[in-house]
Simulated scan of single mutants.
Amino acid sequence: MLDIVIESRKAEISAGFSVKRILPYQLRRMVGPFIFMDHGGPVTIPVAEASNLDVLPHPHIGLSTVSYLFSGNVTHRDSLGVEQVITPGEVNWMTAGKGITHSERFEDPAMLAGGKLEMIQTWVALPEKSEESDPAFDNYKPDQLPVFTDTGVWMRLIAGEAYGLKSSVKTHSPLFYVHVTLEQGARFGLPPEHSERGAYVVRGRVEVNGNTYRAGQLLVFSKGVDPLIIAKEPTTLMMLGGEHLGDRFIWWNFVSSKRERIEQAKEDWKQGRMDLPPMDNEEFVPLPESKSKPAGSPPPNALS
């Protein structure tokens, strides 16, 4: 029933800002088109240290970044000239395509001091035909996203199609991405129409097939099964998946079906050939000093 249970690992994305890294994982790099998943917060730091959390301008290719907040706010600026403050329940969907740069600034010190920042960021790999598409950015408000409620269940469909609902968020391949809250004892299932499916436990505990799983774990399920998820206490889940796109290489912020395309992106960034956000161009993240090759994705069901 379960392909694998992925334990989140600590990763530092800027000085003083650590997150739970869920994907990619050595034994399972993707779930459907989702190739990256970070869970940040809740964050509480002194007001004087708020700027340490800022993610300076940096590049992407071959993917869409998806930012979703449970609490707090983040200011996005990108090389298209977009400046957008994202708040809870909204979706920032940025498609890098052939190349984009952006920053994420935490410009509300009182929010951080109050422990009111918590967010999930995922990356969705693009199909080969869209990897070199023009970059784009869209912000979607909560009232643009379908919501379903039932006894003990609240669910928002962030993107894709699931449970008979369809989101207005523009995507490039079949997928689903869902925010779910469950009261103790509530029961919930996964959308059966998608071949690859996962459920990340943000908080709380769930029971599946007699076993209990806790916050910080991503449960990846076998194709064709219909698992029943039972909340052992008030629980928040992020469910995601879709259809497998084929293997991808990933290195730093770059994703591609071709290893040589990532090498080109590395050189483009190193030589300053990618424009910085016009409203945030005084600093940037340099290319990491690493001689490692882009990592390829193993087959979708590879296990140890």
Rank of each mutant, 00 (worst) to 15 (best):
L182N: 00
L240Y: 11
M155D: 12
V220K: 01
S222I: 03
N209E: 13
G152P: 04
P234Y: 11
R214Y: 14
L228N: 04
R248C: 09
G185S: 11
G204K: 01
G241Q: 14
G198A: 13
L175E: 14
V225N: 04
G185W: 02
W154V: 11
G204Q: 12
R187F: 06
E196K: 02
Q184F: 00
R156C: 13
G216E: 10
L182Y: 01
L237V: 00
G198S: 07
L240P: 02
W154L: 14
K223T: 10
G198R: 09
L219M: 14
L218T: 07
K166V: 06
R156L: 11
L237Q: 11
T235E: 08
L240S: 12
G198F: 11
V208F: 03
E207R: 01
S195L: 14
G224Q: 09
F221G: 02
L228A: 13
G242P: 06
I158C: 07
K223C: 06
G189L: 10
S168R: 11
P227N: 01
P191I: 07
T235G: 03
H244M: 04
P174E: 09
D226Y: 14
S173Q: 11
W154A: 13
L190M: 15
S222D: 10
P227R: 01
R187A: 14
A231Y: 03
M155L: 15
Y213W: 10
S222P: 00
H179R: 05
G189R: 14
H244V: 07
R203G: 10
T236Y: 00
L245E: 09
V169P: 08
M155W: 02
H179W: 03
P192V: 14
R214G: 05
V220S: 12
M155Y: 10
R203A: 10
V206F: 00
G189Y: 06
H194A: 13
S168T: 08
T171D: 05
L218N: 06
A159V: 13
Q184H: 00
L157D: 07
T181V: 04
V153M: 05
R156P: 03
E207A: 02
A199C: 14
T151I: 13
S167K: 07
D247N: 15
G185E: 06
L245K: 13
G189I: 13
K170Q: 14
A162W: 05
P227Q: 04
G164N: 08
A231L: 01
G198L: 12
P192M: 08
T236N: 09
Y177F: 15
G185M: 01
I230H: 07
A159N: 02
D226W: 02
